[in-house]
Simulated assay, not measured.
Amino acid sequence: MIDADSIAEMHARMAECAIISGEPAKAHAAIERCFVSLAEAANERLTYADAVVSLDGGRTATLLHRAGIHTIGDLCGLTFDEVREIQLIGKGIAKRLQDALAGHGLHLRPSTEGVAA
């Protein structure tokens, strides 16, 4: 069985080929699929509570849950700005979430602002 990390790597290579061949729409789609695969890999490696409960006694986990963010994959699928848009989550909490993910080798989805589709 192929794991989610391998699938993410395959999508990253597809994006690279699309960029080289001058097909930005295909590259963008492959990058999006890559991040979905990375999020799935994150769910395989890490439980939701591991990343957020230690931040502030569970308050952040409650805010994320209310916003429909139930897994690490859900969280990794958001950009920093999308995390900040969640009610009562400011820059400080978003930064702590980003740092907690980084501590496990994970990250938020990069912003696609300014990327041609």
Rank of each mutant, 00 (worst) to 15 (best):
A39G: 02
G22L: 02
A41T: 00
L108W: 01
H70E: 11
I93R: 06
V52G: 02
H107D: 14
I72M: 12
L63P: 00
T47L: 12
S21I: 05
E44M: 07
A4L: 00
E40Y: 13
S21K: 06
A49C: 13
D81W: 12
I72R: 10
G114S: 05
A42F: 01
A41E: 00
A39Y: 02
A30Y: 01
E23N: 11
A25T: 11
C17K: 15
D3K: 08
A18R: 03
A30T: 04
A39M: 04
M10N: 03
E82N: 07
V52M: 03
A18T: 05
A12H: 10
E44P: 07
S54V: 14
P24H: 07
G90V: 00
A67S: 04
D50Q: 07
A49F: 13
K91G: 14
T62W: 10
R109N: 06
C76M: 09
H11A: 12
S111G: 09
A100T: 14
A117I: 15
A102E: 09
I20V: 14
D81Y: 09
L75H: 01
S21N: 07
R59W: 13
C17E: 14
Q87A: 14
S37V: 06
E9Q: 05
M14N: 10
G105F: 09
I69P: 09
S54R: 13
G77C: 03
D74C: 06
Q87C: 11
C17R: 15
A27N: 02
E40S: 09
K91F: 13
R96K: 13
T60C: 05
L46T: 09
E44T: 09
A42Y: 02
P110G: 06
R84S: 10
L108A: 02
P24S: 11
E32Y: 08
I89W: 05
L64Y: 02
L64C: 04
A94W: 02
L97W: 03
D81Q: 10
A100R: 11
G68T: 03
A30S: 05
M1K: 12
A100H: 13
C34M: 08
A51R: 03
G73H: 01
I86Q: 04
Y48G: 07
G73P: 00
A27R: 01
I72F: 12
A41W: 01
V36R: 02
R96Q: 08
N43P: 04
C76S: 06
H65Q: 14
P24K: 02
M1T: 08
A51K: 03
A116S: 15
L97Y: 03
D3N: 12
C17M: 15
D56K: 11
R59D: 11
T112W: 08
A39T: 04
